[in-house]
Nucleic acid binder design. Structure first.
Lengths: 178, 178, 178, 178
DNA sequence: AATGAATGAGTTTTCATTCAT
DNA sequence: CATGAATGAAAACTCATTCAT
């Protein structure tokens, strides 16, 4: 397999699980069966590797948001969004773990500042597009609240409450936006 | 002045601003005008210092939740809770920054695991006490949703959206729970 | 109990078990239920404590060698010496452990240099007094060999061979000198 | 020159002279003209370096014991062994110093436990092979006594008695086993 | 593209000692 | 006699990065 790809895959996993600061490149290289020099060769530095990874997860988010909206009502679109959010939250905890880490941790925040802004703007914009059709006047605030709600759910589910009742929460949220 | 207290104060500030991993003890000691050995003397290790700090913030949270509930309706209690949440969110960003960091970052999470669990249980319990009076059947889910919502707002406000419309969000939330 | 005495007792045990360099005073103080300042008060320094302890073990050795020789033949004296050597070797391993450590380890050797020389001279002298009566001409060499033999046995028994056949060795040695 | 080799050479010398605990890696690196990180790179840790060194001295001992025995009587073999023991004891005090240190000092003992056991078993076995031909019944005890005697002589010569009469002792021992 | 030896700054921790009370 | 807060030097270890091959 492509060593560059291997490196990215392993690093993504480790950064998500252990955090960026707590994952030495030596460990990444070892697990990826790759020499240390290769990282600086491909990504210039550890920060470079992180930025590459973050960009990829952004692309994934863009893809998720790019479903076909043409024949759907705004509420149907919200439901679809929620469906994919909850199913991915259950399927790929690490993905959310990683993104929360990167945003909350001051050091990574700094490294990724421009990329984080770009991504959040995109998400806000896409959400607002939907709410504009429902309640144009309060679309911005409602979008923010919508996003905050989902982030909060992810946070509680991943980080805080072991017995978080995800199913029931999903039902409640669905009822609210359907 | 008490050097122990000085140490805790400075460390709290720095851990919040820069993150735990990114704050060397050398900097903490320098700013606190204290020798390196004193940390080991009082807190055994950097982890020990962190745990002490986390415990103190927990105590603060407990205090905040210990207002007098006797003559108030559950909805009045929620409003009071929200008032103190929003006013503190504006007044002391670092406090929320710190707590989010500690919970989301895998390394600190591990160090504080027991304390985090204890604290979250307390918060859930206190919230549920209120919702039990409003809607006993769904009290647990509603409590979780309530907490997640607030956490999500803090996350968006602190970490993601520079132009987060906190005032409007507060109004919306207040309307919902009043 | 006298705290000074307590301190010496605990320190002797720990220095024997863990070695001098590897025994922090903090541990000694903790186990002896005594404050740190007390060591500097009584013994001036860690080295001072060590010297005090070494002196005490020397006194013990002097006592052992001070049995009544008047009515005994030199060979009877040797047998008596060997008896007490072997019985103490079995009874108090730590005692030998400690003394070997102190002599072999360069750092402690330096601290105790004068005391070690004094003690070894005493032992050599006492041994030679006996051998002088057996074989005056070779007394010095035979004394050295006698001492070396016993030290070697202690070394093998304590440090090297788990299954050292102490009983059979003792028989052989006894036969040789009786 | 190979920096790894340089490191081992200098470290061996310093550990022998000053003891393991009393030799900071900073000094080793300085004298070997090598950066601190290189130790971690090659040996993982200070303990790792020590184990490597101990292994090498074991190999040396194995070599010494691997002389050609075919045409020699057991007593001739003992004499040869003694010759090489005494000549090395005079020529390379540090070699014996090092080995005694490592075995007697509790901390190094622990680090090297398996290697020490392996080596002592080898020595005992090789010695016993010779004594088996002389006195099969008491070969084990006699081997132990032989080894203990030599160890004791090394101990006295190196560590205790400045005026140790090595020549005369050697004569005595030679006479006994020839 | 890939390796891995080598660096060196930086980090936490250890610990004997001092000193005011 | 006794305490324990405070110091500061020294230690081992970590780890991203560089560079010759």
């Amino acid at each position: 397999m492509d060593k560059r790809e291997q490196l990215i895959e392993i690093a993504t996993k480790l950064f998500s699980e252990k955090g960026y600061e707590n994952t030495p490149l030596s460990v990444v290289c070892e697990k990826a069966n790759v020499s240390k020099g290769l990282i600086s060769h491909h990504f210039k530095s550890k920060d470079g590797l992180l930025r590459e990874i973050f960009l990829r997860t952004t692309n994934l988010i863009v893809e998720i948001n790019s479903f076909d909206k043409k024949n759907k009502s705004p509420n149907e679109q919200l439901v679809e969004l929620l469906e994919s959010f909850f199913s991915q939250l259950e399927a790929d905890k690490l993905f959310f773990q990683f993104n929360l880490n990167m945003i909350v941790q001051p050091s990574t925040r700094e490294i990724l500042d421009d990329l984080i802004k770009e991504r959040s703007s995109f998400i806000l914009e896409k959400t607002k597009e939907i709410f504009d059709k429902i309640d144009a006047e309060n679309a911005l605030v409602k979008s923010h609240l919508f996003i905050a709600e989902l982030d909060g759910i992810a946070l509680s589910y991943l980080g805080i409450y072991k017995d978080f009742p995800l199913k029931e929460i999903k039902e409640q949220i669905m009822k609210k936006y359907a």
